[in-house]
Computed example of a mutant assay.
Amino acid sequence: MSAGIKMHLPNLTLAQQQVEQYHRDGYLILDSLISSEVCDALKNRMSELIDGFDAESVRSIFTTNEQTRHTDQYFMDSAETISFFFEEEAFDESGNLKQSLSASINKVGHALHVKDDAFRQFSLATVWGNMLRQLGMAEPRAVQSMYIFKQPNIGGEVVCHQDSTFLYTRPMSVIGLWFAIEEATLENGCLWGVPQGHNVGLLKRFERVSPESIETKMVTLKEHQWHQYELVALPVSKGSLVILNGEFPHLSYANRSGKSRHAYALHAIDQACEYPKENWLQSNVNNGFQLFHL
């Protein structure tokens, strides 16, 4: 870590029951898996990155509503950079921040696992590659990373979605690793999901109009409506890991509490699968997607 902190990560072997539960329900929670010290080290490193960000250089706002209308070159370039995206409610009518910069960022992505030493050390650790192989991946690769703040009072809603919509492979292979850097509660915007909802299949694909274009579109593959009563809350303690099947439908509500909900999300695919050139995220960093340490 930047402050000389050594990354102590757990030794982990999933029980067969846990593997079966993941495939049955579409998700698996490993409670308090990461130490508080590692969580705090990642949080502190992110604070350093924000301190070095020139807020006047870009004003990109992240929203999951009408995604195609908010796609620009900055967003596309974030596949290979450490990019900063603001909360929708961060600015007043004059375009000025309503609170401090550190309380205004929605997320930072999408190449932390490549571009920052601390996040790379954590993200590409042997333990995660081995775990992904246990869950069925032949050649796991890290493709996308995001630090998500869920800011107090203005933390935006993330509508119900499936991660494979944005990181499509043939056949399906996406797995999301969602680490709770802070406690995630009903009050500050924990995840909600639809158990076994992944069995419905993928509903949409978010893709480029053409491989080289920054223009994007949302393609409907299947008509289906998730119902409120199907959702189950997934509150977790600090240091917990939520493993998400790429077709598992999940969301988080807006955070109107006075407490943030920091999380770090890492998405992996199986390199044995086809990764279409129409996917929005294309990376040439270090010759492609990242191998987990062996």
Rank of each mutant, 00 (worst) to 15 (best):
residue 284 N to A: 07
residue 71 T to K: 05
residue 44 N to H: 11
residue 134 Q to P: 09
residue 22 Y to H: 10
residue 233 A to C: 02
residue 276 P to Q: 07
residue 168 Y to I: 00
residue 62 F to T: 00
residue 56 E to T: 14
residue 78 S to L: 06
residue 116 D to M: 06
residue 247 E to K: 06
residue 101 L to S: 07
residue 63 T to D: 04
residue 68 T to H: 07
residue 25 D to L: 15
residue 82 I to K: 09
residue 131 M to C: 14
residue 251 L to E: 10
residue 86 F to T: 05
residue 290 Q to F: 03
residue 150 K to W: 04
residue 186 L to T: 02
residue 204 K to V: 01
residue 262 H to A: 14
residue 53 F to T: 08
residue 206 F to K: 04
residue 140 P to Q: 05
residue 113 H to M: 11
residue 275 Y to T: 13
residue 83 S to P: 07
residue 278 E to D: 14
residue 232 V to K: 14
residue 14 L to E: 09
residue 289 F to I: 02
residue 188 N to V: 07
residue 105 I to D: 07
residue 24 R to F: 09
residue 144 Q to S: 07
residue 98 K to D: 03
residue 191 L to H: 00
residue 164 S to H: 13
residue 196 Q to K: 15
residue 214 I to V: 13
residue 238 K to R: 15
residue 109 G to W: 04
residue 60 S to G: 00
residue 50 I to N: 10
residue 76 M to I: 15
residue 147 Y to H: 13
residue 114 V to A: 12
residue 37 E to F: 01
residue 36 S to Y: 10
residue 40 D to S: 12
residue 186 L to N: 08
residue 130 N to E: 15
residue 169 T to P: 04
residue 235 P to R: 07
residue 56 E to P: 02
residue 262 H to V: 06
residue 202 L to Q: 07
residue 266 L to F: 08
residue 17 Q to N: 09
residue 97 L to K: 02
residue 294 L to P: 14
residue 113 H to S: 09
residue 175 I to L: 12
residue 129 G to I: 10
residue 182 E to T: 15
residue 66 E to G: 04
residue 231 L to S: 03
residue 211 P to L: 13
residue 169 T to L: 05
residue 240 S to T: 00
residue 56 E to S: 15
residue 256 R to S: 09
residue 106 N to I: 00
residue 198 H to M: 02
residue 120 R to G: 05
residue 70 H to T: 02
residue 30 L to V: 11
residue 121 Q to P: 00
residue 228 Q to V: 13
residue 226 W to P: 01
residue 210 S to F: 04
residue 138 A to Q: 15
residue 199 N to S: 12
residue 7 M to K: 04
residue 272 A to E: 11
residue 58 V to W: 01
residue 184 A to P: 05
residue 239 G to S: 01
residue 60 S to M: 03
residue 279 N to K: 02
residue 190 C to H: 06
residue 156 G to I: 00
residue 292 F to P: 13
residue 176 G to P: 06
residue 231 L to K: 13
residue 252 S to F: 01
residue 32 S to P: 01
residue 138 A to G: 06
residue 192 W to R: 12
residue 177 L to F: 06
residue 254 A to Q: 05
residue 51 D to R: 09
residue 221 L to A: 02
residue 222 K to A: 03
residue 119 F to R: 02
residue 50 I to F: 03
residue 288 G to Y: 02
residue 232 V to L: 08
residue 291 L to F: 08
residue 118 A to W: 03
residue 266 L to E: 04
residue 97 L to Y: 08
residue 9 L to M: 12
residue 79 A to R: 07
residue 213 S to W: 04
residue 130 N to A: 09
residue 165 T to Q: 10
residue 286 N to A: 10
residue 55 A to F: 08
residue 229 Y to Q: 13
residue 195 P to I: 12
residue 284 N to V: 09
residue 87 E to P: 03
residue 285 V to Q: 08
residue 64 T to Y: 04
residue 36 S to L: 11
residue 251 L to I: 05
residue 195 P to K: 09
residue 235 P to N: 08
residue 157 E to R: 11
residue 140 P to H: 05
residue 211 P to M: 14
residue 286 N to Y: 10
residue 168 Y to Q: 09
residue 34 I to N: 08
residue 79 A to D: 02
residue 227 H to N: 10
residue 290 Q to I: 03
residue 285 V to S: 08
residue 255 N to V: 05
residue 241 L to I: 07
residue 269 I to W: 08
residue 215 E to A: 11
residue 160 C to I: 15
residue 238 K to D: 07
residue 276 P to N: 05
residue 22 Y to T: 07
residue 222 K to N: 11
residue 291 L to R: 07
residue 2 S to F: 13
residue 54 D to H: 10
residue 234 L to Y: 05
residue 50 I to P: 10
residue 234 L to T: 13
residue 56 E to L: 10
